[in-house]
């Protein structure tokens, strides 16, 4: 019985770390005052490009670097269009999603149809490197040890990124400047903060982080390409929702990931739970899996509505979000 819970917790983490990447990446971007709706597309590009590079070189490290660079380039495109060219952020973000997902399928289909075929993951060194490993001692802690400390390296990287980002916002001067830009770019500008440079840098880094999340999803799905189902599968959108849930805090994003992940995992694990506890949880199997799939979106909708009822919960929302900054506008 304990095993079921351990497995459940384990799965929450395994399946939902991409959300953490997507959310922290988006938080970094939104803190600079930009709303990027292109998370889904950015993750898709980071996933497919990173995976292919990793498969080619058989190295997880290369996969991560390339994934980061590829999605960082998407971030560069977004910054160029919205920061330098003052394009509408909503439209640019949505186009990045359309473009990114199409890019994913296009490359995937082209490769699948080619002579060499889509590169397989299983059995490669890349596969081995991305496998879970047990952290000595910690993983031996009863109940929690296995669930928390026997994961692949990317899981830990995601958590570390979230914690570092939290410290960055809270404790450093560049973090303070970044938050100032998100709140009032005019004020930051007048104090000699290079608004455009900050926006570019953070949008690119944030996008790069999202890309890692995409790569993780690809690896986690065994690297198999299906013509009809994108690896990202809406996680980019959930990430945007999670940003609100986390009140723009990377630390709360960790918590949010667990909460959202709980429902997500319920979809996969409800049968196991019902089997173990037929009396108390037997009803779980009666709920269609689609409901669990839709649950993150339903919860976000509810969070959106309830948080708008009181202004307190939105204290982390950057005041200048979604608006472009042009110094000479009067």
């Amino acid at each position: 019985m304990l095993d079921v819970f351990t497995l459940f917790l384990f799965n929450i983490i395994v399946y939902n770390i991409p959300l953490l990447y997507g959310t922290t990446g988006e938080i970094m971007i939104e803190k600079s005052g930009s709303l990027n709706l292109g998370v889904e597309g950015t993750m898709a590009i980071g996933a497919v490009v990173g995976y292919l590079a990793g498969a080619k070189t058989d190295s997880l490290f290369v996969a991560c670097v390339v994934s980061f660079i590829a999605s960082g380039l998407v971030g560069l495109l977004f910054s160029f269009l919205t920061v330098t060219l003052q394009a509408n952020q909503n439209v640019t973000g949505l186009t990045i999603t359309t473009f990114g997902v199409a890019f994913y399928y296009f490359i995937g289909n082209a490769l699948s149809n080619s002579a060499s075929g889509w590169p397989k993951l299983s059995g490669t060194r890349l596969d081995v490197q991305s496998q879970a490993f047990e952290i000595p001692l910690l993983s031996k802690i009863p109940f929690f040890g296995k669930a928390l400390f026997s994961h692949g390296i990317l899981v830990y990287l995601g958590v570390i990124i979230a914690i570092l980002m939290w410290l960055y916002f809270k404790k450093t001067v560049p973090g303070l400047k970044l938050r100032a830009i998100g709140e009032n770019p005019g004020a930051a500008d007048s104090l000699g903060v290079n608004v455009a440079l900050y926006k570019y840098t953070h949008i690119i880094i944030g996008s790069g982080i999202m890309g890692l999340g995409g790569l993780y999803m690809g690896l986690n799905m065994g690297g198999t390409f299906e013509g009809s189902n994108c690896w990202i599968n809406g996680y980019g959108w959930i990430s945007i929702a999670l940003v609100i849930f986390a009140n723009w805090s990377p630390a709360k994003a960790l918590l949010g990931t667990l909460v959202f992940g709980f429902f997500n995992t319920l979809r996969v694990q409800n049968a196991a739970l019902a089997y173990t506890f037929p009396d108390t949880l037997g009803w779980l199997t009666k709920i269609p899996s689609h409901f669990f799939s839709a649950l993150p979106f339903i919860i976000t909708l509810i969070v959106l509505i309830t948080s708008s009822l009181s202004s307190k919960n939105k204290s982390g929302e950057p005041q200048a979000i979604g608006r472009n900054y042009y110094r000479e506008d009067r």
Partner: peptide
């Protein structure tokens, strides 16, 4: 040109 949500110290610190 002040960030309303920051404290005085934070506002000065930016620059």
């Amino acid at each position: 040109k002040l960030v309303e949500r920051f404290t005085a110290l934070e506002n000065i610190r930016i620059g």
